[in-house]
Structure formats: structure tokens, C-alpha cells
């Protein structure tokens, strides 16, 4: 449980971080360290150089701008959970952050680190996909924005190129009247979701006018359950609709299987959790 030798830098500006990252092929960015450090302790990961972003003040902020909430990559889960702005303007994200790991993890782990690590069972993506969030990727040669759906390529694999740093997550402000819920059943050792569901539901006069549903922990990457969404919109908000829609939770998804939960169980769990999350959201009005 002792990592291999590595160099350590703690730059105070993003440009310095990018320069360091570009100058060392063995370098790896360190955010909250909640995934990378354990891997290093097992020596499964042996980066030659860690570039710690913790001392860059510009990466830890929450701000409202142009109809979206911008969240700096180094904002901790606890800050996301407790931010008054996020709670008011993007409530699903704050609700989801409260479910991540435990208090210690939420105090150290960061939204940027989590999104970049792209664990297929991480909580954030379920909320961020349902909220159609975007991420900002910066390199020495420029910057680009990417939707989270395209950013998450596969398990532990993202669009991030060598020399790039994810600096911000942009979440559109919640629409008026939209109800939200996050629900998860976790594996008790790791706290990772065996099926986590983020739901946004718009209901007008008893009819569902808007639906976003995303799942994590079920497939090899978190995904939007568009078949569920389609089965909801235009229907009356109620138990029958929710149950019928939830049956599509894993349409086209090759469910994961591990010693904690078989694919069969995950498929069942996904449908149950989607239905219950929809009921939670509808009941939160």
C-alpha cells in the first residue's frame, strides 16, 4: 500500500499546470485523489509525476452565468452538496452529491476528478447527463466544450486528450416547475451505485411535458435512458405510466456483472429504481 516513486508539483496557476503536464509524458493530474491515490497505493497506477491542482484557486468556484451554473473542477462534493446556488438552481446535482461515498470522500473528492475518472458507477454522471451538462477542456493550445454524453466514451475512458485538463462543469439552470430526484442502491463496501438514477420531470395539468432520466452503475458507462423519457412525455403522471416507462430502463444496454451484482439483478434494479425515482420526483411537488 505504498506508491511507487513519483515527482510532485503543486502549481498555483492553470497555465503552469498545463505547462508541466505538457512537458512530462509521465505526468498525471491529481484532483481530490479519491480514485487515483488508492490505485497508486496498490501500484496499479504508477504516474511518474503528479500535478496537484489543489493550489489553483481559480478552479474552485460556483458561479451563475448565461443561464448555467459554472462549477470549477476542484469544487468538492461537499461544496456542491451545500452550495446555496446549486441547491436553488440545479437541485438535482446537490441531491446527487449528497449520496457520494461518505463524509470524508465528499470533503476531499472533486467534481472534476470524478467526471474525468469516468467510473461507470459514479453518482455525478446520472445527474449531469439528466441535466445535459457540458464540460470545459483546456490545453496549452486552446479550449473546447463537450457535452457530458460525448465526453464519457466508455468505462474509465473519456474524450480528454493528453495535455488537456477539465476545468469546469457547466450545468443549465433548472427549468421552472421541473421536479427532480436521485435514487441509488449502493454496494456496501465501496458505496458505488449498483443502480443510480437521476430524474427530471416536468408535469403540466397532470401530463408529463418533459422528462430526463439517466442511470449509472448499470452499464459500462452512465447513460441517458431515452426510451424511458419517450415513454413518459405526453402521458399522464402516475404510477402506471412510471412503471411502464421504467421497464425501458436498460433498453439496448449491456448490463455489467460483478461479484456484487449480476447483470440480471442490475437490470431489475434499474427498472425499480427508475420507477421509484419518478415517483419520488412526482411526489416532491
Amino acid at each position: 500500500m505504498i506508491p511507487a516513486r513519483f515527482e510532485y508539483s503543486a502549481p498555483e496557476t492553470l497555465s503552469e499546470a498545463l505547462r508541466l503536464l505538457g512537458s512530462d509524458g509521465e505526468a498525471k493530474v491529481l484532483a481530490g485523489g479519491q480514485s487515483l491515490v488508492p490505485m497508486m497505493k496498490f501500484r496499479l497506477a504508477q504516474p511518474g509525476h503528479l500535478i496537484d491542482l489543489a493550489r489553483i484557486p481559480d478552479l474552485n468556484f460556483v458561479a451563475e452565468e448565461n443561464g448555467a451554473i459554472r462549477i470549477g473542477a476542484m469544487t468538492t462534493h461537499n461544496q456542491v452538496e451545500t452550495s446555496a446556488l446549486i441547491r436553488e438552481k440545479c437541485p438535482l446535482l446537490a441531491k446527487t452529491a449528497a449520496h457520494i461515498g461518505d463524509v470524508q470522500v465528499r470533503n476531499r473528492g472533486t467534481i472534476g476528478g470524478s467526471v474525468v475518472h469516468a467510473d461507470p458507477a459514479a453518482d455525478y454522471p446520472a445527474a449531469l447527463l439528466a441535466m445535459e451538462a457540458k464540460v470545459k477542456l483546456v490545453s496549452a493550445s486552446g479550449e473546447r466544450m463537450a457535452g457530458l454524453d460525448e465526453f464519457l466514451v466508455d468505462a474509465l475512458t473519456t474524450l480528454l486528450e493528453e495535455g488537456e485538463i477539465l476545468t469546469e462543469v457547466h450545468v443549465p439552470l433548472e427549468r421552472a416547475g421541473v421536479l427532480t430526484a436521485y435514487r441509488t442502491l449502493v454496494q456496501p463496501a465501496s458505496g458505488f451505485a449498483m443502480a443510480g438514477v437521476g430524474v427530471r420531470l416536468g408535469v403540466e395539468n397532470g401530463t408529463i411535458t418533459f422528462a430526463r432520466v439517466a442511470l449509472t452503475g448499470v452499464g459500462s458507462k452512465p447513460y441517458r435512458a431515452t426510451a424511458v423519457e419517450q415513454a413518459l412525455v405526453g402521458q399522464g403522471a402516475g404510477a402506471e405510466t412510471f412503471a411502464a416507462a421504467a421497464a425501458h430502463a436498460t433498453d439496448g444496454v449491456d448490463a455489467l456483472s460483478d461479484m456484487h451484482a449480476s447483470a440480471e439483478y442490475r437490470v431489475n434494479l434499474a427498472a425499480v429504481q427508475v420507477r421509484r425515482a419518478l415517483e419520488d420526483a412526482a411526489g416532491s411537488a
Partner: peptide
């Protein structure tokens, strides 16, 4: 299940 990520004890 050789780590605390996989071996569960009550919290």
C-alpha cells in the same frame, strides 16, 4: 474481495 472497496463491513 481483497480490499475495503469490495470487502464490506458495517458502517
Amino acid at each position: 474481495n481483497g480490499t475495503m472497496m469490495d470487502y464490506a463491513i458495517p458502517k
